[in-house]
Structure formats: structure tokens, C-alpha cells
């Protein structure tokens, strides 16, 4: 198994930490992992993205052109990465703030209303964990137990009391991710 993922959105949405928790979870499961952030001026107030790879084998390039899964959290990232998903791959996005919805018919597209669900939960910060939950429903590449173990490993002990909340957010994401059909959306117009 090799899963090549790009997570892209605004700086401050928890894009890099979502990638980090995914990488930690993979490590807890005994996988090879790599986490390659975009860093530099584009992070400051603009878009942030991270490439995460989980694999049974030694990982070659941590920097990629095409991905098995793109998790897209703003319009700029949709413009940049919709066409970087491999044919047959997966695109997951939060429709909040998206004007131009994806149009590809050769990939599986899912919506997760992370922003809305996080507001409902009363904690905007769990947004990224809701999205992670949605991803794990579509691609169960790491078990929930290993995600929790990854959270324990990556979070300083003083934040460990937040782990149940994060678990709840992941579960919520798993329950609320829905398939998005490009054809039906076009008819709606």
C-alpha cells in the first residue's frame, strides 16, 4: 500500500497539523511516512499545503506532481490541485467558501462540511480533525486506535485532555462525509 496525499488550504486552518497527525498515525501503525510542507512566503497569510505519504515500502520522492487523494480546503487550492489528482483518485473538499466546484468525472469526489460541523460542536479548532475523519471514512488507511495513539505521541501532555474531543470530531467527520456527483450539480444549474 502506498497513499500519496496533498492537504491544501489557508494558513491557520490546521493543514500542517492534520498532515502531521496523519503521519504520526501511520508511524504508529508501522508504516513508512513522509510529511513535506510548503514553507516560505506562501505560508504567511496565504495558502498552506503539505504532502503526506504513507507506504509499506521505502518512500522515494517526498515531493510529487500527482496524488491519490487531494484534501482541499479553499478555492485557491481547488484551482491549483483539482487537476493533480490521479485518474481514479479521490478529492475531498469543504464546500464552505467554494465558488467553482470540482468538475472532473474521472475521480471520486466527496464533500465534508468541516466548518459548519466544527461551529456546531462549539470549537472551530476541531475543523481539521472533522476533515481527517471524513478522509479516513473514504480511505481507511489507518485505524482510529492508531490515530489516537498518534495524537498522544504528537501532542504535549498538557493537551491530552483534548483527545476525547478530537476523537469525537473524527467520528463526526466519518458520519457526515457525502459523495458529490458532478453530473447532478451541473443539472442543478
Amino acid at each position: 500500500m502506498t497513499e500519496e496525499i496533498i492537504i491544501a488550504g489557508f494558513g491557520g486552518q490546521g493543514v500542517l497539523s492534520m498532515g502531521k497527525i496523519l503521519a504520526y498515525s501511520g508511524m504508529m501503525q508501522g508504516e513508512e511516512v513522509s510529511w513535506m510542507p510548503s514553507y516560505g512566503p506562501e505560508m504567511r497569510g496565504g495558502t498552506a499545503n503539505v504532502t503526506v505519504i504513507l507506504s509499506d515500502d521505502r518512500i522515494s520522492s517526498p515531493y510529487l506532481k500527482v496524488y491519490d487523494t487531494a484534501i482541499i480546503l479553499n478555492q485557491q487550492s481547488m484551482d491549483k490541485f483539482e487537476h493533480s489528482v490521479k485518474p481514479g483518485g479521490v478529492l475531498i473538499y469543504d464546500p464552505n467558501g467554494i465558488i467553482d466546484h470540482p468538475t472532473r468525472t474521472d475521480i471520486a469526489i466527496y464533500q465534508i462540511e468541516g466548518n459548519r460541523l466544527a461551529t456546531e460542536m462549539g470549537n472551530k479548532k476541531v475543523f481539521n480533525m472533522i476533515v481527517l475523519g471524513g478522509f479516513l471514512k473514504v480511505k481507511p488507511i489507518v485505524q482510529l486506535d492508531n490515530v489516537i495513539a498518534g495524537l498522544k505521541k504528537s501532542l504535549p501532555e498538557r493537551y491530552h485532555h483534548l483527545i476525547p474531543l478530537n476523537k469525537e470530531a473524527i467520528t463526526k467527520g466519518m458520519q457526515h462525509i457525502i459523495s458529490y456527483k458532478v453530473e447532478s450539480a451541473l443539472i442543478d444549474h
Binding site: 503521519a23 511516512v33 513522509s34 510529511w35 513535506m36 510542507p37
Partner: peptide, 10 residues
């Protein structure tokens, strides 16, 4: 280089 320095791996 910046790529090896900034990336995370096991």
C-alpha cells in the same frame, strides 16, 4: 537542503 531539512520522516 531545504527539502531534507524541512520534511518530517521516521
Amino acid at each position: 537542503d531545504g527539502l531534507i531539512g524541512q520534511m518530517m520522516e521516521k
